[in-house]
Amino acid sequence: MALIELRDVTKSYTRDAIEIPVLDRVSIAVEAGDFLGLMGPSGSGKSTLLNLLAGIDRPTSGSVRVGDTEISSLPERSLAGWRARHIGFIFQLYNLIPVLTAFENVELPLLLTNLTKAQRRDHVTTALGIVALGDREKHYPRQLSGGQEQRVAIARAIVTDPTLLLADEPTGDLDAKSAAEVLTLLQRLNQEYKKTIVMVTHDPHAAERASHLLHLEKGTLVEQTRVG
């Protein structure tokens, strides 16, 4: 059984009583350990799809199953708990909390767990070690470069050891060198740590790192490419 299964997912937004279709009967299966790249022109519905997987948005119809949970039917409160346990989300604009240090930012998702302070410290140190920022614990986001901020954000996404890593254009705001570092890191997380990753990207360099590619066009899947 695939780790993630989207079946006949439709999503539309209603604006001024007009229904705008964004996703039209999309079905996808993602195996555990995949590194899926999601490509497509702007406005094709990539972020929307990723948000449905993350459980921060709900499909208009169709089913979204992650593991053995049908998340489209979870009530809001359980969905929040589910996200905390299963999802690591990486944003294009990093979205670190500016008033918290790198350490505290990474620790944030652990506050929702039952871990002791010492255990949390262990996890945070490990996560920051993986992204090679062990020496920046006490730095605030504004004291870090964009690439470093994104790596802290990746540490925050992996610190709870989630089922699924989701990244929405994680290199969209980075220079080529930082982007390459971030991609190498994601690839390592996939290969060494066996993380299942779904990454939305425009960048062909980024797409190269994925093990599969999906193309969205006006809300429908147009082709599926296996890389390598």
């Binding site: 993350a54 921060i56 809001e76 409160r77 929040a80 708990g81 589910w82 996200r83 905390a84 346990r85 999802i87 989300f89 944003f91 979205n95 909390i97 500016p98 944030l108 998702p109 929702l112 925050r156």
Partner: peptide, 13 residues
Amino acid sequence: TEIAVMRTLGFPS
């Protein structure tokens, strides 16, 4: 944004 991020991380409303 910060609130949305915290909610994404799984903080309940």
